[in-house]
Amino acid sequence: MSTKQFDRPLNHVITSSELLAHWQGHRSLTRRVIQAFPEKEFFNYSMGGMRSFAEMTLELLAIAGPGLKEIVTGETQALNEHIDPKNQKELVLNLWDQATEEINTYYNQITQDRFHETIKTFGQYEGTVISSIFYFIDNEIHHRGQGYVYLRNLGIEPPFFWER
Rank of each mutant, 00 (worst) to 15 (best):
Y106L: 02
R51T: 04
G155P: 07
F122K: 06
Q112I: 10
F42G: 02
S2N: 09
R8L: 15
R51F: 14
Q24M: 13
E102S: 13
E126P: 10
H82I: 08
E117P: 01
T111W: 00
A36K: 13
K89N: 06
L154S: 05
M56C: 10
N104V: 01
N139R: 09
L61R: 06
N108Y: 00
P159W: 05
Q112R: 07
P38L: 08
K69Q: 15
G48S: 12
L154M: 12
N104P: 07
A21K: 13
L61E: 04
Y107M: 07
Y150T: 00
A36D: 07
E18M: 04
Q5M: 08
K89Y: 08
E41K: 11
Q98W: 04
W96N: 03
F42T: 03
Y150K: 02
E157K: 14
I71R: 05
N108V: 00
T57Q: 06
I156L: 05
P66V: 10
D138G: 11
K120S: 14
A62M: 09
P66H: 08
H142R: 09
Q124G: 12
L95D: 01
E101P: 00
K4M: 09
H142I: 08
A36C: 13
Q124C: 02
N11W: 03
E41D: 15
K69C: 10
N11I: 03
Y135P: 00
L95P: 06
H26F: 10
A36I: 05
T105E: 11
I110M: 09
A78D: 13
E41F: 09
G48F: 14
E39Q: 14
R8A: 11
L95C: 05
E59A: 07
E55L: 11
I14Y: 04
S17A: 12
S2G: 02
I71D: 01
G74E: 12
E101R: 14
V149C: 07
P159I: 05
F6H: 10
E41W: 06
M50G: 06
G147P: 03
Q5I: 15
H12C: 05
F134W: 06
E55H: 11
H116V: 02
H143L: 01
F6W: 13
H116Y: 13
E41G: 04
